Amino acid sequence: MSLCLGTSESSKKAEKRKFMLKNGKFLLQKLIASCNGDYNPIQNFTAQELKAATNNYDPEKVITKDLLYKLYKGFLQDRPISVMKFGGNLNSEEYCCFNCIAFASQMSHKNILKFVGCCLETELPILVFEFVACGTLADRIHDPNGSQLEPFLMKHRLKVAMEIANAVAYLHVGFSRPIVFRDIKPSTILFQEQNVAKFFDFCVAISIPEGKTHVNDNNKVIGTYGFIAPEYISTANCNEKSDVYSFGAFLLELLTGKRISYSSCFENGEEYFLQELVMKSIESNSFKEIVDPIIVGEEGLWPEKEKQLLSYTQLAIKCLSKSGQDRPTMVQVAKQLRQLHKSI
């Protein structure tokens, strides 16, 4: 019996060593390719530590989940953490996992979830981030009745929009090679506290090569339906203006509480996507009907408040221009949102 246990233990150690060598080599290649020689210390965790920290990945500890991963609440070394565990399907998740580490480890911004470290001794690395407690922005705006938090008013939404705009602008101008996030949407924004937003999930982020104006990822178009810029769909070329388009769609979801793919039938039987519904409501002077009822509130839309919301909506529509050249930069978007936030 002792011989069997020894053999089993030896086999487990050999497997961990194999994964650490493979993952370490792949991660090093990713970091060299994306970090421009900058030193990014990454803390190492053991698989056993993270298993214990999450109570063996208890489903009750899931903060949010995607097709590729789940993010868990955890507690390790006397501090709360967040643990990102991929499902183990190497074909679809290996690239995203290492991509997330490579980019997240470069980030230093108050509204981007801080990357702490990872575990390399499992088939796919397990990632560790700072703690978040209050779910995603998608939870707040699409399921307000399920939240135990205070009503998500326009002043809160503008604060979040402004801070996330600052974070995206940081990706575009804060590095020697601009980083395109490629999947800006409410579910990639977490809340550390009630209204403290943190941008998250660099699984599909990509850098624009030096001296180039766009990047083509082997003719693949990556993103979420309704948030993908039309020129990216038609050419597979993306750049910073692709993110601006996604951000415009995000702004509309934040304003209306509806999903960007939301559609509604009118008398003539036609269906309209959210962007079209918003524009139609402005043209027909029925703007109030499309705004999230939580924003309108009991006091309704007085003239000054409606003017502010229209300015916000016009910015979103400008970001959603069909041509990338007609869209503002994220720096310009952040500046305008900051002015709107001050006015409220």
Rank of each mutant, 00 (worst) to 15 (best):
S2G: 12
C4K: 13
C4D: 13
E9P: 00
S10G: 14
S11G: 09
K12C: 07
K18S: 13
K18N: 08
F19M: 15
F19D: 14
F19A: 15
F19P: 06
M20V: 12
K22G: 12
G24W: 03
F26W: 09
L27I: 09
Y39S: 08
N40L: 14
K51M: 14
A53F: 09
T54E: 03
N56M: 03
D58Y: 04
D58E: 10
D66Y: 00
K70H: 10
Q77A: 11
P80L: 08
P80Q: 10
F86A: 10
G87L: 04
G88N: 08
N91L: 13
E94T: 10
C96P: 05
A104R: 12
A104C: 13
M107R: 14
S108Y: 06
K110R: 15
G117Y: 06
C119I: 03
E123H: 01
P125G: 05
A133V: 01
C134A: 09
C134H: 13
T136E: 01
T136L: 11
L137G: 05
R140K: 06
H142M: 10
N145R: 08
Q148I: 10
P151N: 05
L153I: 09
V160Q: 07
E163I: 07
R177P: 02
I179N: 01
V180D: 00
V180T: 01
F181K: 07
R182M: 14
D183T: 09
T188V: 05
T188N: 11
F191K: 01
Q192W: 00
N195G: 00
N195Q: 09
V196G: 02
A197Q: 03
K198V: 04
F199D: 04
D201Y: 03
P209D: 03
E210D: 09
E210C: 08
K220C: 14
I222P: 04
T224G: 08
Y225K: 14
G226N: 00
F227Y: 15
I233W: 02
T235V: 06
A236V: 04
A236P: 03
N237V: 02
S242T: 15
F247R: 06
L255C: 08
R259N: 03
S261K: 02
S263M: 14
Q275D: 06
Q275C: 12
E283H: 12
F287A: 15
I290F: 15
I294W: 12
E298Q: 13
E299A: 13
E299Y: 07
W302H: 14
E304T: 04
T313I: 06
A316V: 06
L320S: 00
L320C: 08
K322R: 12
G324W: 02
Q325R: 11
D326P: 04
T329H: 06
L337W: 04
L340D: 05
H341S: 14
K342F: 12
I344S: 11
